[in-house]
Amino acid sequence: MFLNQFLLLSAILFTIGVYGVIVRKNGVLVLMSIELVLNAVNINLIVFSTYWGVAGQVFALFTIAIAAAEVGVGLAIVLLIYRNQRSVDIDELDEMKG
């Protein structure tokens, strides 16, 4: 097997995730897209751990744990937004406009 077949797969997943983050309106769907991005990164870590030792695996595990925490907090935020706005459309959150 080649290194690149995994690395390219991960690159594709990453771009699809980025596309989702940019395009999706629903907060929950944006979080799902972020999961795609994180998993793409994890594949990279694991691939390179076959070169440089188990550190990559360790960090993949760390990423998984952090991703779990991120989903927890992220969904709590989405829930809060829903409660305040009765909608999870990120489009409607434009209070950042100066």
């Binding site: 097997m1 080649f2 690149n4 690395l7 690159a11 691939v47 076959t50 440089w52 030792g53």
Partner: peptide, 18 residues
């Protein structure tokens, strides 16, 4: 990304050296 990857790693084999 793909340009960088192909440029860098080309057809290097996965060796599981570690």
């Amino acid at each position: 990304l793909s340009y960088a990857l192909i440029e860098t790693f080309g057809r290097s084999e996965l060796t599981f050296a570690a």
